[in-house]
Simulated assay, not measured.
Amino acid sequence: MGKLRIIAAVYAIVLLGAASLNYIPGLTDDQGRAFGIFALDIYDDSLHVASAAWAAIAAWLSSRAARSFLFYFGVLYFGDGLLGLITGSGYLDLGIVNYGIQDLPLGFKILANLPHLALGGFAVYSALVFGKKATA
C-alpha cells in the first residue's frame, strides 16, 4: 500500500474519531462543547462520517483515488477553516447559513478552526508532494 493510500486511511480513522467526540463520556462539557472549545452537531457528525467514508473508499481503491481525495478534501476543509477563522462560521456544516457571521474572540476562532486548517493543509500538501513522487 502506497503512502497516499496510507494517509487517506489515517484520515478515515481521524474523521471517524472526530464524529465520535460527542459520544465519548468526559470529552464534552456541560454545554456540549468538545474539549470546552467547539460544539459538534448532527451536521458536523454527518460531515465527518461522510468524509471518513470518502477517505476509506479512496484508500481502498487506488493511489490515484487517494490523491484525489486528499487534494479535494484538503481544499474544501482548508477553505472551511479559513472562512471559520474570518467569520466564526464554516460552510461545510452549513454554519454560515444556520448561524451567519459570529462575533467571537480571535483566540477562540483559531482554536475552533485549527483542526480543519491543519487537516486540510496537510491533505493538500500530501496530495501535491507525495502525489508527484508516486507518478514520477
Rank of each mutant, 00 (worst) to 15 (best):
I24P: 02
A136R: 15
G36H: 06
L16A: 13
N22G: 13
S126H: 07
R5T: 08
A118Q: 05
L106N: 05
L83A: 10
L82I: 14
A56P: 01
S46D: 05
A123Y: 03
L40I: 13
R67K: 13
I7V: 15
L85T: 03
L114E: 04
K109N: 03
S20L: 12
L40H: 11
A12T: 11
G32C: 04
V14D: 00
I110K: 01
N98S: 12
A136S: 14
L21R: 04
F35E: 02
L27H: 08
S46K: 12
R64Y: 00
S126M: 03
A53C: 06
Y43H: 13
G17R: 08
Q102D: 07
G90Y: 09
A55Y: 10
S62F: 00
R67N: 02
K3S: 12
A112I: 02
H116R: 06
I37K: 04
D29N: 13
L114C: 03
F130G: 02
A8N: 06
V75C: 07
L94A: 14
I57P: 02
D41M: 11
G131S: 06
R67L: 01
A52T: 04
Y77F: 14
G131A: 07
G100M: 11
T135K: 12
A65W: 12
V129N: 11
A19I: 11
G81M: 04
V14I: 15
I37F: 05
G100V: 14
F122C: 01
I57K: 14
P105V: 06
A53P: 00
G121W: 13
L82M: 14
L76W: 03
L106K: 02
G84N: 03
S68P: 00
G2R: 07
A66L: 03
I6V: 13
G88N: 02
F130Q: 11
R64I: 00
L27I: 06
